Amino acid sequence: MKENKVKFLFHAALVIFALIMLIPFVWMFLTSIKTYEEAIRIPLQMFPKEIQWVNYEIVYNKFPFLTLYWNTIVVTVVTIAGQLFIVSLAAYAFARLNFPFKNILFIGMLGLMMVPGQIFLIPQFRLMVQMKLTNTLTALVLPSLFSVFGVFLLRQAFQTIPKDLDEAARMDGCSYFRIYWQIMLPLVTPNLVALGIMTMLSTWKNLMWPIIVNRSIEKMTLSAGLAMLIGEHTTYYEQVMAGAVISVLPMIIVFMIFQKQFVEGIAKTGVKG
């Protein structure tokens, strides 16, 4: 009886926290169907008197949303594919191969996680300028093709796999790359999915870098395009929220589809050092 009561309280607490997490999304949607006066009213007005779907039409016509969507999808897909390949290769090397200064290099790489990412913005921008890649989608992809956290995550996953598999594959004549591609990667699929979802979220919502490196709205992503809805003197918050709803829907759908793999990938990541 006591155990059931504890379980009930635990689940009740989880439901309460989940509802609290949903409040910003509910407020975003409700604001997106309000009038301008209702959106800025003090005290706050929770529900609109009359639904204003026209806000979505205004935002859609104000910006080239299809182009922004396409840019965001292309940048996100290419970043995910490139990062998973490069990061998994590095993680496999650190976890399964022996080479000089391996541990020192890995510790030094982990030290980069303690450095704020904003410090690298100026060097990255100068590099894009020298390579003549500014105002291109390539400039949005290149800096995101490597992730120290991703290497750490997949290294831990690779280390949980028995060494006997490597030895058996080597005896059968497999190369290191074939072992990595045909044996190791399938065994860490949940971890790859988890890293892919996290990469997708960070790329989809990235705001600062697209604004810095690109000037034309035709080469921007959704987050950068929505930032232009913020006016210098007047901001139509109902339109900003309508644009936010349009941009966030794909991420919610993707997470709902792959949430099981995401949780499994995080849960199965070992802490073996």
Rank of each mutant, 00 (worst) to 15 (best):
K5R: 14
K7G: 04
F8H: 02
F10G: 04
A13S: 07
L14I: 09
V15G: 03
I16L: 14
I16K: 03
I16T: 07
F17P: 01
A18Y: 03
L19Q: 01
M21G: 02
L22K: 01
F25S: 11
W27M: 15
T31A: 00
T31I: 00
S32H: 00
Y36W: 02
E38V: 08
L44N: 04
F47R: 05
F47V: 12
I51F: 15
I51A: 14
Q52F: 10
W53G: 15
W53I: 15
N61K: 08
N61Q: 11
F65C: 05
L66I: 12
L66K: 05
L68G: 03
I73Q: 03
V75M: 03
T76D: 06
V77A: 12
F85I: 10
L89S: 10
A93L: 08
A93I: 08
F94T: 04
F94H: 01
L97F: 08
F101E: 07
I104P: 01
L105F: 13
G108Q: 06
M109K: 01
L110I: 14
M114V: 15
P116R: 10
Q118D: 09
P123S: 09
Q124W: 02
Q124P: 01
R126K: 10
M128A: 14
V129Q: 04
V129P: 01
T134H: 01
N135L: 07
N135H: 07
T136S: 13
L142V: 15
L142H: 01
S144A: 15
S144R: 05
L154E: 05
A157R: 08
I161Y: 04
D164Q: 14
E167Q: 12
A168T: 05
M171N: 09
M171W: 14
D172V: 12
C174T: 13
C174S: 11
F177R: 08
R178L: 15
Y180R: 11
W181E: 09
P186S: 15
T189K: 15
L192V: 12
L192K: 06
G196P: 03
M200K: 06
S202L: 10
T203R: 11
W204P: 08
K205S: 14
N206I: 08
M208G: 02
M208K: 03
W209L: 12
P210Q: 05
I211A: 12
N214T: 08
I217Q: 05
E218Q: 09
E218I: 14
K219E: 13
G225A: 07
G231Y: 00
E232H: 05
E232Q: 15
T235P: 00
Q239L: 00
A242W: 00
A242D: 00
A242I: 00
P250Q: 04
P250A: 05
P250F: 03
I252A: 10
I252F: 07
I253V: 13
V254H: 02
V254P: 04
M256T: 08
Q259M: 14
Q259C: 09
Q259D: 13
K260E: 12
K260N: 13
F262S: 08
G265K: 09
A267I: 12
K268N: 08
T269P: 02
